[in-house]
């Protein structure tokens, strides 16, 4: 989130509440839980790190919501570095994979049951995101994000199919 806030300031200096509104708009229903306090906490951290400066309007008390924040040269460099970066979140599949293996080895649980329970949970999430996606107006900026979450969940559901195939029949000799 720090990088996103910095990048939003690249165009022009802005108040925290303005940044909050822009983030909320970009995230659509996925941003509803984000509160303004988080933005001010982030801005305070960025200010301490010398990446932004907050300027208080004249004659007003020293409070974060009164400040207009602007990028420093270091902040600008960090935005450029962020844009050039190709890091990507790693899907954590190993944990579930090991859960199945351990459950089968110690006969703690039926791996197929674990797969089925996980599938139910992912389908409920998929339903939730999809209902949000269908309700989102076509011009919403959050459309591609919701679609991305849907695609992720579908990929995970396919992977659960792979797990199911691997553990059906194989379950018996898994121990």
């Amino acid at each position: 989130m720090q990088d996103a806030v910095l990048a939003l300031l690249a165009k022009e200096p802005a108040h925290g509440y303005h940044l909050h509104a822009r983030l909320r708009r970009a995230l659509g229903p996925l941003g509803e839980s984000m509160n303004r306090g988080q933005i001010y906490v982030t801005l305070a951290r960025l200010e301490r790190a010398g990446l932004v400066v907050g300027e208080r309007a004249e004659g007003l008390p020293e409070r974060p919501e009164r400040k207009v924040y602007a990028l420093t040269p270091a902040g600008r460099e960090r935005v450029a570095a962020w844009l050039a970066e190709t890091g990507w979140p790693k899907p954590d599949l190993a944990e579930f994979h090991l859960k199945l293996a351990a459950a089968a080895a110690a006969r703690l649980a039926d791996p197929l049951e674990l797969v089925a329970a996980q599938r139910r949970e992912l389908l409920r999430r998929l339903r939730e995101v999809q209902q949000a996606a269908l309700a989102e107006p076509a011009e919403s900026g959050a459309g591609p994000l919701l679609e991305g979450v849907v695609l992720r969940l579908r990929a995970d559901l396919r992977w659960l199919d792979v797990c199911e195939r691997a553990w059906s029949g194989a379950g018996a000799e898994g121990g």
Binding site: L27, P29, L30, G31, E32, S33, Q38, E128
Partner: peptide, 25 residues
């Protein structure tokens, strides 16, 4: 082999969708 209610009572409302993204500070 399975019969699931997808509408089962669920603690996460729409507002909690952000939790799927790991949005935090």
């Amino acid at each position: 082999v399975d019969d699931t209610r997808l509408t089962a009572a669920h603690p996460r409302g729409l507002g909690g969708l952000g939790g799927m993204l790991g949005l935090g500070g």
